[in-house]
Every structure is written in C-alpha cells, then in structure tokens.
C-alpha cells in the first residue's frame, strides 16, 4: 500500500524545549489515521509541519511523494485542510465563501456537497461566518472540504468547541465521505470517543516520542488492563518496559500490557510482586490511551 504521508526523522524544538526527536511515521493510502497525545506532546506541531506552516529543525515530510517545503502549489488541490477551531474567513457569508473557494478548484469542486450540508444548518444564505456558532462554523469548514473533494484530509482537532450533536454530525458525514471515496485522512482530536468511531489506525504520542502506531483493531485486541490483589501497604517497586504504568489503589494493582495473562503473571512473579487473583480486561480507545500514556 502506498504511503500518502511519509515523515522521516522529524525533530523539533521550541527554543530549547524538545517536542520530539527522530519521529517517523507513514499514513497509508485510503486509511484514516488518528494522532493521539496529551496536551503539549506535539500534535498541532505535527499538523503545522505537515501543512507547511512550521519548518522542523531536522527531518523531512513528504505528501504524495513531494517534500512539503518545496511542494508544487497545484498539489494543494489534493489536500483538504481543517485548521484548529474550524477557522474560516469571518468577513464572508455562506454564499461568498463557496464562490471564493470554487474558483480555485475548477473541475473538482462539488457545490452540491457544500449546500447539502448547509441546508441542515438552517441558516440564511447570507449569514456571515462571523455570526455563526462554533458548531455551525464547523459544518461550513467541513462542507468546503467535501466540496473540494481532496484525496487527503488533514484535520487539526476537529472536535474542539463542538457540542455532542455537531460532533456526531461531523464524524458521520466525514466517515461516510472518506469511506465511500477511499480518501486518506490524518487527524487529531481531544475527544477520543470520536476517534474510535472514525479511525482505522492510530498513533499514540508521549512527550518526545511515538508510543505506538498500529491499526485500531489490533491495538484494542492486544492491549489489556490487568488487575490483581496485592497485600495492604504494598507499593509498586519494580520497573518493566512491557508493563505500563503500574499503580496500586486500595490493595489493587493495575497495569496495562500487550503481553498475555500468562506472560504478565510470569513477569510479576519475576519482579517479586506478591499478587493474587490476576484479571485481564479488554479496553476501549480511551482506556488504551490512558493505559499507554498514564493518568498524569
């Protein structure tokens, strides 16, 4: 499968603060990849680098085989960009903004896709964008992307500021569009439940590095939460790279791991943990995210 996005050895600092070092990832064609990470782990930095609005300290990013820094402007026809906060030109109204963008995408612009979504908003055609709620603006931004009909969609925190209804509308429309047309999507969001409904693959980032990149199904099939009874007063005193974020709350040891129950049991025994009654639970994406990145 061809990679639509390929980032190699990305390193970036803000001043002396390292955001990440030697980051590598690829987004295969026709897949929806979600980038998850706590605040400050570099999600928006990555989107900004991918959009060409931030020059990384080192490393390269290619989209459709072209380096982002020297990309042919015509290639941007194939890339739909949603900026954090669903930013759009405030001084335009619904009709004006459609007319403006349509002139840049002759032959590919699908006016009806935009107006179909606008009809759901029940706003006047001359409604100014500046007078819209964040939810309404998100639909304008999405409608413009659907009308542009790009091969790649880059969406920065698409759920920010949206109430559950608009979030659901956004996700459903987007999922239907990308699945029907085999589009590639690279997105970030703070709302992990939305990601779970949408993404095929996910990258989970921690400060300075990628913790895991794999298909969502594989992640949820292989990562588990393990709980076990430990004696009163026991505190975690071991470190094992395959047992993530072990903690004890009221005599219950909790940890996350890609290992099987037998392997976890063997590792705990090897680490001298006085445990009993080991349980293994499946996870949703939010639990998996917390399991890998920790609660703090």
């Amino acid at each position: 499968m061809n990679s639509v996005i390929s980032c190699q050895h990305l390193t970036h600092y803000y001043g002396k603060r390292k955001i990440y070092e030697d980051l590598n990832f690829e987004v295969p064609e026709g897949r929806i990849l979600g980038l998850l990470g706590k605040n400050g782990t570099g999600k928006t930095t990555t989107i900004n680098i991918l959009s060409g609005y931030l020059k990384p300290r080192s490393g390269t990013c290619q989209i459709f085989g072209q380096d982002i820094q020297t990309m042919d402007p015509a290639l941007r026809r194939r890339i739909g960009l949603l900026i954090e906060g669903h930013v759009q030109y405030q001084f335009m109204n619904i009709e004006q903004i459609e007319r403006f963008y349509a002139s840049f995408y002759p032959g590919q612009w699908r006016k009806e896709a935009y107006y179909e979504l606008m009809a759901k908003l029940k706003v006047a055609p001359r409604q100014m964008i500046s007078r819209m709620s964040c939810g309404q603006r998100s639909q304008v931004a999405l409608g413009l992307i659907l009308a542009q009909n790009p091969d790649l969609l880059v969406l920065d925190d698409f759920s920010i500021g949206l109430d559950p209804g608009y979030r659901r509308l956004f996700v459903d429309y987007l999922r239907e569009f990308v699945k029907a047309e085999r589009k590639t999507v690279f997105l970030t969001s703070h709302i992990i439940q939305d990601m779970e409904r949408l993404v095929d693959d996910c990258i989970i980032m921690d400060y300075g590095r990628i913790l895991t990149q794999q298909p969502l199904d594989t992640l949820l099939d292989t990562l588990h939460r393990f709980t076990a009874r430990v004696p009163e007063g026991y505190d975690v005193a071991f470190s094992d790279a395959d047992l993530f974020h072990p903690s004890v709350i009221r005599g219950t040891l909790e940890l996350h791991s890609f290992l099987s129950s037998d392997e976890v049991s063997a590792r705990l025994t090897a680490n001298g943990v006085p445990f009993s009654d080991l349980h293994c639970e499946s996870l949703n994406l939010e639990d998996a995210f917390i399991g890998l990145t920790g609660k703090y």
Partner: peptide
C-alpha cells in the same frame, strides 16, 4: 488583520497557487 485573526492566513497560503 482579518488574515492574521486566528491565523486565517493559513487558509490563504493553502490555496493551490504559489505563495
């Protein structure tokens, strides 16, 4: 100023014409 409001300039620079 409207271009710099919420970094709208990103939208302009994303249009398929040379910067």
């Amino acid at each position: 100023v409207p271009e710099m409001y919420h970094k709208c300039l990103k939208l302009t620079l994303h249009l398929p014409v040379s910067h």
